[in-house]
Design a protein around this nucleic acid. Sequence first.
DNA 1: CATGAATGAGTATTCATTCAT
DNA 2: GATGAATGAATACTCATTCAT
Lengths: 213, 213, 213, 213
Amino acid sequence: MGGGKSKRMPRAVREQQMLDAAVQTFARRGYRAASMDDIAELAGVSKPLVYLYLNSKEELFTACIRREAQALVAAVRAAVERDVPADRQLWSGLRGLFAYTAANPDGWAVLHSQARTQGEPFVREVAVMRAELVSFVEQLIGAAAKEADCDPEFADREVAGLAYALVGAAESMADWAGSPGGPSAKEAAATLMNFAWAGLGNLMRDQRWTPST
Amino acid sequence: MGGGKSKRMPRAVREQQMLDAAVQTFARRGYRAASMDDIAELAGVSKPLVYLYLNSKEELFTACIRREAQALVAAVRAAVERDVPADRQLWSGLRGLFAYTAANPDGWAVLHSQARTQGEPFVREVAVMRAELVSFVEQLIGAAAKEADCDPEFADREVAGLAYALVGAAESMADWAGSPGGPSAKEAAATLMNFAWAGLGNLMRDQRWTPST
Amino acid sequence: MGGGKSKRMPRAVREQQMLDAAVQTFARRGYRAASMDDIAELAGVSKPLVYLYLNSKEELFTACIRREAQALVAAVRAAVERDVPADRQLWSGLRGLFAYTAANPDGWAVLHSQARTQGEPFVREVAVMRAELVSFVEQLIGAAAKEADCDPEFADREVAGLAYALVGAAESMADWAGSPGGPSAKEAAATLMNFAWAGLGNLMRDQRWTPST
Amino acid sequence: MGGGKSKRMPRAVREQQMLDAAVQTFARRGYRAASMDDIAELAGVSKPLVYLYLNSKEELFTACIRREAQALVAAVRAAVERDVPADRQLWSGLRGLFAYTAANPDGWAVLHSQARTQGEPFVREVAVMRAELVSFVEQLIGAAAKEADCDPEFADREVAGLAYALVGAAESMADWAGSPGGPSAKEAAATLMNFAWAGLGNLMRDQRWTPST
DNA sequence: CATGAATGAGTATTCATTCAT
DNA sequence: GATGAATGAATACTCATTCAT
């Protein structure tokens, strides 16, 4: 016994191997261009086994999205410092995000590049994760508003917009931070904090930019 | 009068019809899932004619990207007010952008969702357009910095990062603004100005956010 | 006035241009792989004109075969010296054949490589030409037999076989003589005369090779 | 018992069935005109299976050529009598060749009619086989020359030309022998021996045919 | 548990051929 | 007489998916 592909592994392990192979393949080739043959071969198993465990290409892709989304959210959550001011929490969360996406480019590509462009039902899956991130940022902004004892006119809808913009900018930075020549996770986080936090501060103090100026 | 399949049109007209159909199909189905059959049918012509004029799926997609990218850049340029302060120029440009993407969701989807995720040589095509937008924003920030007589430490690399983040946030907002329940073009532009401009102002005054706080 | 493609030429001239282009294209690409587009472009005319004059790809190919077959037979006939002994006639005919095929490799390829392999009705066309050459050789052998006052047992069927073999060897030599590194027309003819004529002489003298020896 | 489509055969068996069908189809329709659909249907399998095992039309054709070429060379080698005079060896080899081509007209057509006219890389494949046959004949001529203690001026290049002509004539005779109304294998071999061997004998005795005569 | 064998349904692409002008 | 515009029908090739063992 010894060399060669080890056989007869518990199902859970095999499934993770398949998901690993699928994430890599989907990320690099795209959902449509990735073939089940490629994935099975990369996973080191036969094609029927992939079907036995994951049922179909669609379910396989969905499973990839779910696993990667949960891992990413978990990474961000784990990175956030507790019991510190809101800005500090955002800062640590962003650093965690950029560090994670840089370390898992394939997973990030599946979530941000592939899943979002393949229509239903995949967009729904990523939307759930994105909503979680946006909601987290909204909470931070809300907390910051309370900390700063800010103007009560600072409406929910406005917060939602800001949170959305911040997450959008962060996702875009994540792509950049993962590419060669791009910034480090720390630089990206710093840029975003500088970019966003002062604006938020002004808003909370009711100092809006208006076109009339 | 009108209806029915009109036949025997000059080449230039037919080509535009084909590009219209292709943009719509690529936007809604994705590059790989869109079939040349679908496109030809939607364009109201036979498949060989599509090949006669556009040569291949790859060239057809590239032609779509180029046309849409040029149209978008042209729309933004046309919307920018001249001879006004930099913030006002950015404001008008953003409004133009969001108005255009909302009015041309398929074109925007081709550029932002599809082209960027289909690997070379398509990413190169959109990168050109994106670089144009980023460069435009960089110029505005530079102009604003001059207007504000700001700190000279405000370095180029920092400007590049901010411009990149702003464009990324704008692209993300454009997706949102184009979806049902999303903000209007004006709202999206206002959100982004509030989000971004105050932060920029602080930076120019050398008031950075730093983690030590 | 002036350069460019001259227009409005008499039909006969245009037809020859088309056949020239067709022979070249069929020879180099093969019957199936040669497209009417290629041929029309090489001929410098529009595709509908090719159809107007030659009706179909099949008829066009047939016309090529006929023209080239007649030209080849004419070249051989013209090369044969009259009023000389049979061997001398064969010698001059072979030199003419090899000189012609070397000078017209495309025409020869159409006849020998392409037409023979494309099934009916093309094989029939070349068979006619081949029969003419075989018959010519049979006559020469017959004449030689008479000159040599040979054995009357020298039967027709045997003559036919010899003529067939000689023509086959000649065709094979023609391919070789036309290729780089191959023999000159004169060398090829000499080889074939040495190879064939002595054998014929023995046969005429009833000195057959028999397995029992 | 027997009939009906038998399913689930081992790969090696199926591959041979596919090659059988491919040889027949290529021989009768030509390389370009033979469609993979035709071949799959004749083989009694689906098209994807043909691709799974043989990869592409080009590789399938190449596999046909190789198989048929090896079979033909093996048939000739098996037919040649050992330890007999050179003429007797040639005689037995020719009988073997004609018997084999007559029994396998499709394989012979693939080699002689189709492969040679479809350009690279197929011509290279048949050239290998042809070179083997020519080389075999050269050895026989050389052996005969030694047996006959012939003139040393009998140069290599001349031998090469003669061998080439003999093989060319044989190939041509093989076509004839395989067609209705053509000679039997034995007749064809006899004709060729009579045609060729006496000529060779004269040459070895330095009795060349020369034009001056 | 695991796989070799097999396929129905598509996909991009090409070609011979024909009108309307 | 000559052509730009247009297509029906085919062709090589691929892929997600399923049995029988």
